[in-house]
Simulated scan of single mutants.
Amino acid sequence: MIFDGHIFDGHNDLLTRLWLSNADDPVHDFIYGTLPGHLDLPRCRQAEWMGGLFSIFLPPFNYVKSNHPDKLANASSLDSGADFTPQQIIDICRAQLQLAQQLQERSNGQIKICTTLAQIQTCIQNQQFAIVLHLEGAEAFAIDPELLDEFYEAGLRSIGLLWNRKTKFGDGLNVPFPHSPDTGTGLTNDGKDFIEKCAKKRMVIDVSHMNERAFWDTAKIIDQPIVATHSNAHALCAQARNLTDEQLRAIKESNGMVGVNFDVAFLRSDGKRDTHTSLDVIVEHLAYLVEHLGDNHVGFGSDFDGCLLPDDLAGVSDIDKLIERMQQRHFSDTLIEKIMAKNWFRVLDKIWQ
């Protein structure tokens, strides 16, 4: 398998940042490195960050209304009441899908939307940037399940059915720290049916935002590796979104994967949103997950452009600092290579084949 030190990430929110941007041409700014944030193409190239799972995500309504009210006006409905309209939800997801397509179309061959491991490997060979499309929170598909075929045809290959909000697919996961993952009911019948539909398409099923009952419902339904694209160890940080040892055992038994989230609130033992957080805490979560899952089941799930990072990790350009901490912790070169990319390649190939 081609590698040569490149990094592949399990989760970022670049597409949502581009959609929220007030820049005249955020796609241009990403490609040419003039857009603020954790990621842009020149910095990714410099860091040998060759791609990952790129999330299409519906931000909280109150955040959009307060900070980006023009985005509501640009949706098909001008309603700016207490929540998004169903059509706005669909339009926002389509808009982010179109931004991914524009990144590919306007990059002069530098960026490619990938749907197979072979395509990702070809991108590495050709020094291209690989985008795997992911949907974080399937509210739009709960409104119109037929959208799945449309988005799949456009390249969607990974889906997280739930986020913090309750939908007809199941409860969200939104409780104060500290808390166990047991926060509500599991998947509804509609949610279970939809998981089966996605699994038949050999899509990655992401459990990162599922409560515990929905996690176990999913584990019973799917016959493929269980993947948490951006979650950490609950034993080290008791956020409800982090994974218990029992959940980790199930992921290991399924030959699955966990991507470590760099957000300080999901790393720190006190759960605080405090950027004065050592990179050693990320390494602690990596080491804990390796101990419980094994060398082949842990990677990065940074949550870049959607999280609050430690001061020493201002963005993708600082990823070498984290690699150095892993080396200081006596992670072997082989293990570091697996965490940086090879483990993601393994699980994606297993699911997509």
Score class of each variant (00 low, 15 high):
70 D>N: 09
84 F>L: 04
54 F>T: 02
136 E>W: 11
157 R>I: 13
27 V>A: 01
69 P>S: 06
200 K>S: 05
349 D>F: 12
43 R>A: 04
35 L>D: 06
66 S>C: 03
111 I>A: 00
121 Q>H: 15
36 P>G: 10
189 N>D: 07
19 W>P: 06
319 I>E: 00
238 A>S: 11
46 Q>V: 03
127 Q>H: 13
21 S>H: 01
44 C>S: 15
224 Q>V: 00
330 H>E: 12
127 Q>C: 05
256 G>I: 01
91 D>H: 08
77 S>V: 00
170 G>Q: 12
112 K>Q: 08
341 A>W: 03
311 D>T: 12
1 M>A: 12
77 S>I: 05
293 L>M: 11
329 R>L: 04
236 L>F: 08
215 F>H: 01
166 K>L: 02
6 H>T: 12
118 A>E: 03
100 A>I: 02
4 D>S: 08
245 D>E: 14
303 D>K: 10
273 R>W: 03
56 I>M: 09
159 I>N: 05
219 A>D: 14
54 F>N: 10
315 G>I: 15
183 T>Y: 06
194 F>Y: 07
176 P>D: 14
12 N>T: 00
153 E>G: 02
29 D>Q: 02
153 E>N: 05
45 R>H: 08
27 V>Y: 03
206 D>G: 01
114 C>S: 05
158 S>G: 13
266 F>Y: 13
321 K>Q: 11
24 D>K: 13
275 T>V: 13
24 D>I: 14
254 S>E: 01
135 L>S: 15
212 E>F: 07
46 Q>C: 00
200 K>P: 04
166 K>R: 10
296 N>T: 13
123 C>L: 01
186 G>C: 06
203 M>P: 11
